[in-house]
Design a protein around this nucleic acid. Structure first.
Lengths: 222, 222
DNA sequence: CCACAGATTTAACTGCTCAGTAAAATTGAT
DNA sequence: ATCAATTTTACTGAGCAGTTAAATCTGTGG
């Protein structure tokens, strides 16, 4: 008897299938990012990809699977980009954190915008879940704050947890503005960093405070 | 010949029509706020209101008109609530500003959540337009900052415009979290005020700074 | 190079829900 | 009682996700 996965040309066929899936997923990204999440339909996708709708179903199954795949791919790449060695300097830490994300977004804006849209609309990442990139981002923010405090950058007048949440919030709002098409990535960077530096400044020791003010004014004038 | 608006019982009828419109608009609010914006359909609305779909069309015309009316009513009430005499104390100013909005939201949570949803989804308030409540909020934030600076609460290390934008951002993110159902109004207040106080603290003169720290820690522990 | 089995795609379709409409029936203010 | 305002029944026409069965393509062992 023959093994079920050993039909004649199946190995090659599965590989090709993956390629076709990815090609169509790429088109889906661009459609969502350009036309918006609500306007995205399987028939549009099929027409744009030059195939029929049953082909889409053959490759992905339900429509939701497409979103799940987009979000899953996004979470993986972001999670990877965030898992970097920590930085003892808080300013550099904030910049590295922001620029790591920014580099990713720049590589494939359509992808990340559409994936965030899909995740928001379908509730794919709920804020309560201790899982995923939100928790990871918040943890990084907390580490940035606690290390900054240990190294004398912060005075400790405000709880590090509170500061961390505020740092995270700055990043979150700017991301939403970008995903919704209100601002571009250049402005995203500016908005995030100004917000983070202002947050630091609320608890900064004198020397650090001066550096932050310089940084903020530099960014505002840029 | 008879005047066109003077058909027999028209004056009374128009008044009744207004009442019916408002009754159905109220049901629309609750439907959007409870089931979500995408799930809101005219047939659901008709069924819930105990009328047929053509009645909805007779009262409102296109579906979009319902959203426009919701948003328009919201903008009016918010605009009114924001146009209050200014406060020279920045902390009190922030609280008054926040609590004015909060009081409104509490009066009819379903209404404001659904109206913000509708406005966001249909692009009814675009961020670029110098019109409406966003611009008004930002102006209030700027007045708060510039008055605070004049009265010696702020040192002036950070441009008032920059601080104002950050104050506004705090309010905006918390509002979005509330509209999306992630947090309740109690947490909304906390989140907004902590954000605003942290922002102030970044440029606060020593005495004001101490007060802000107290306020922040008070809020965090509440 | 060729036959062929199964993987893949397709035309044609279902069943559903939507916003919106036309015309007949009903209501209600005077 | 009258007649316009209003509501309703019954209907479009369009778009949606997803299915079925027949046609087509494709990689490979011979």
């Amino acid at each position: 008897m023959s093994s079920p996965t050993l039909a004649r040309g199946n190995i090659t066929r599965q590989a090709n299938k993956k390629l076709r899936r990815q090609r169509i997923l790429d088109i889906a990204k661009h459609l969502i990012a350009s036309q918006g999440f609500e306007a995205f339909t399987l028939s549009h996708l099929a027409k744009e990809a030059g195939v029929s709708t049953p082909t889409i179903h053959n490759l992905f199954g339900k429509k939701d699977n497409i979103f799940q795949e987009l979000v899953s791919q996004m979470v993986n790449t972001i999670s990877l980009a965030l898992s970097n060695p920590d930085v003892s300097d808080p300013i550099e830490g904030a910049e590295v954190f922001t620029d790591n994300l920014l580099r990713l977004y720049k590589q494939d804006e359509a992808f990340y915008r559409s994936a965030f849209m899909a995740a928001d609309r379908t509730g794919l990442f709920d804020h309560k879940l201790p899982d995923g990139i939100f928790h990871q981002s918040l943890q990084i923010a907390e580490r940035l704050c606690s290390e900054a405090k240990e190294n004398g950058f912060l005075k400790g007048n405000i709880a590090t947890g509170t500061l961390a949440e505020q740092l995270f919030a700055c990043q979150r709002l700017a991301r939403q503005d970008w995903v919704n098409g209100y601002i571009d990535l250049q402005r995203y960077r500016k908005q995030v960093l100004i917000g983070m530096y202002i947050t630091y400044a609320a608890d900064a020791s004198p020397d650090f405070y001066k550096m932050l003010c310089n940084k903020i004014n530099q960014l505002v004038d840029s």
